[in-house]
């Protein structure tokens, strides 16, 4: 199967799912969070969250530390189950969703094993695993892997041990893995923590171009200036949703002050 075939299959599959969703009477939501409460203990971390993310959107979730950003992301990905309310991913309940090839995920700090001997190329290869299952990677898969490496500018590091990389390089490798998965939805949890400044800029440009090509991007971000410059829509969170709307309105709104305090206003004004 050539990459083009794969793409068309992916396309037809996506359309198929959309039709199903419409049959169910649902909208074209990629992620649908309704009235969700969740707490690790009796104290809720997030309360009464309702967010719907449509196909092709570029959404950033912002909020101060401990605002429940990462928790909300885990709920959306089905890694956690809400105490009340429901989370649907591509129209299916998120905690039972298992069509992993549709989601690309880049974690905050690589949660991965730190000492393991593994090369950059082997990490990016994992992006193909949901596609090949128990089988071997064929030539086309390797081509996609190498292209993903090239896209993030890490071709020269393909055979380096991941443990020898800097934080920024490592994060690029994980982004390449998400790209190699050819997902419909990219979920990134503070992906630029520890990444050098010039790479950060290029990285957001990359996200934008991916989004232009139809991939839904969900960004969990602490860096407000990055969000206000790149995302189309902002969800501002601090236990509950303080703001949900276009980025321009967010900059003008008082949600920023209410959640982050006065320190953050400078970011809004500088724009």
């Amino acid at each position: 199967m050539s990459p083009d075939d794969a793409a068309s299959v992916a396309g037809s599959r996506a359309t198929g799912t959309t039709t199903d969703a419409n049959v169910d009477g649902a909208t074209e939501s990629v992620i649908e969070v309704s009235n969700v409460d969740f707490g690790y203990t009796a104290t809720p971390v997030v309360e009464d969250i309702s967010v719907s993310i449509d196909r092709g959107e570029y959404v950033a979730v912002v909020g101060p530390n401990g605002s429940g950003k990462s928790t909300l992301m885990k709920l959306m990905l089905g890694l956690l189950e809400p105490d009340t309310g429901s989370v649907r991913l591509f129209g299916e309940p998120a905690d039972r969703f298992d069509d992993g090839e549709r989601i690309g995920y880049v974690a905050q700090h690589a949660s991965s094993s730190k000492e393991m001997p593994i090369t950059v190329r082997e990490v990016v290869k994992m992006g193909r695993f949901p596609h090949v299952g128990f089988g071997r990677l064929v030539a086309d898969d390797w081509e996609i892997v190498d292209r993903a490496l090239e896209t993030v500018g890490m071709s020269a590091f393909a055979d380096r041990r991941v443990t020898q990389l800097s934080g920024g390089q490592r994060q690029r490798a994980f982004i390449a893995r998400a790209l190699a998965g050819e997902a419909d939805l990219l979920v990134l949890d503070e992906p630029t923590v520890g990444v050098d400044a010039e790479s950060v800029e290029a990285f957001y440009d990359l996200l934008e171009s991916l989004n232009d090509e139809g991939i839904t991007v969900l960004l969990i971000e602490h860096d407000l200036s990055a969000v206000t410059q790149h995302a189309d829509r902002v969800v501002c969170l601090d236990g509950e949703v303080y703001f949900d709307g276009p980025t321009d309105e967010f900059v003008d709104s008082d949600a920023l002050v209410r959640t982050f305090g006065t320190a953050a206003t400078a970011v809004g004004e500088s724009r």
Binding site: G153, A156, L206, I215
Partner: peptide, 17 residues
């Protein structure tokens, strides 16, 4: 240390291309 390439925006391959 090999030269780290730049992130190549145009080359971004997606399922839809």
């Amino acid at each position: 240390t090999p030269e780290m390439g730049s992130i190549d925006v145009d080359d971004a391959e997606t399922p839809s291309d």
